[in-house]
Design a protein around this nucleic acid. Structure first.
Lengths: 111, 111
DNA sequence: CCGAATCCTTTGGGATACTG
DNA sequence: CAGTATCCCAAAGGATTCGG
């Protein structure tokens, strides 16, 4: 297990820092966690992410889409239906999430 | 690869959310990344984490110590010397960091 | 149902100067 | 050297309302 030495030149392209930038933000990781369980609609996420405001959810979804991590699919129906799912790039984040889950179980959830 | 279903009851103890709480914050992960390479002094970190303010570094180190992730060791010398290192609980976070490094390399650093 | 628009509060973090 | 003390600001996020 070897870590790169850090300095400000490295940091600009440090994979750890780049990933941290993407998954930072209060709800981002939890959205990906939920989408990893399958396709979800806006208000499904709104309910499962208890306490999130529509504005924040909307912003997060938009930027995740722009980063190529989720896909937004709209259906021309009434009432309107929009489904969100993970792209390949998003699915790969599940490994990060699972490492966090392992850590959390071992050290933070006393079990 | 199976994810737990999320609702607000789960979230209170969700290992992913708990871990996210700990490693959120602009510099936290980078501090741990640097300490994973070995024991470091305050101004070594200040230099390797290019751009961090002493106030922020001080705050992060304190809360990481309170969470049991790093150890602070002082030496009664002149000039004063203080060394920071990872605890077992902190070292285990390296697995999370490495998963982020893999992801970053694959998707964010075009290599 | 799916958001956009507004307004507002909080806070993380930077800059700087100073001290044991 | 290893911080603390202030002051300040941008940005994130919450609450609420409204529209397609």
């Amino acid at each position: 297990m070897e870590l790169t030495k850090s300095n400000h030149l490295d940091d600009a392209v440090c994979p750890v820092a780049r990933t941290a930038d993407i998954i930072s933000g209060k709800w981002t990781l939890l959205i990906i966690r939920d989408l990893a369980a399958g396709v979800k609609r806006f208000n499904q996420l709104e309910r499962s992410l208890n306490g999130i405001s529509p504005k924040t959810l909307s912003e997060r979804l938009r930027s995740l889409e722009e980063e190529g991590i989720i896909t937004r699919r709209t259906f021309a129906e009434v009432p309107p239906r929009v489904e969100y799912s993970l792209t390949e790039k998003g699915l790969d984040l599940v490994y990060v999430i699972e490492s966090m889950r392992s850590y959390g179980k071992r050290w933070l959830c006393n079990q």
